[in-house]
Amino acid sequence: MRALVVDDSRAMRALLTNILQSIGAEVTQAKDGCDALARLRSADRLPDLMLVDWHMPEMDGLELIKQVRKDPAWKPMTVMMVTTESEQENMVRALLAGADEYLIKPFTRDAVLEKLNLLGVHVPEQALAALTGG
């Protein structure tokens, strides 16, 4: 699986990258919406998954998702918003913009893997077993 992590915080990008790499994902990073769009446009192969922060300079996550969903070529990409915005109204805005899932910060590694599993992203059995205590 290929993933793109979009967050203006290097620490948050590192955390999410570590979680995704632990399940075998190949991860690239972008520091804001503009950077993410540039990387998508120049990518040889599109990511299967994009994790997007909401509040970022230049272009925020909501706008990025809207831009991504305008392009039919990028439609197969699964998009999850990862944000501190926990108000229901904002969750609805993100989902209406085209996000497939929504994760509120702070999150645990298990919460990320559970959401990915719900989205149909391949999570190795060993990691899933750890989630269920199996």
């Binding site: 915080s9 620490a11 948050m12 509040h55 501190t84 915005e85 108000e87 910060k105 702070p106």
Partner: peptide, 15 residues
């Protein structure tokens, strides 16, 4: 890192 922690606490307070 410290900025992101403050951002998350702030976001949760905001909610």
């Amino acid at each position: 890192a410290v900025g992101e922690l403050a951002n998350i606490v702030g976001g949760n307070v905001k909610s």
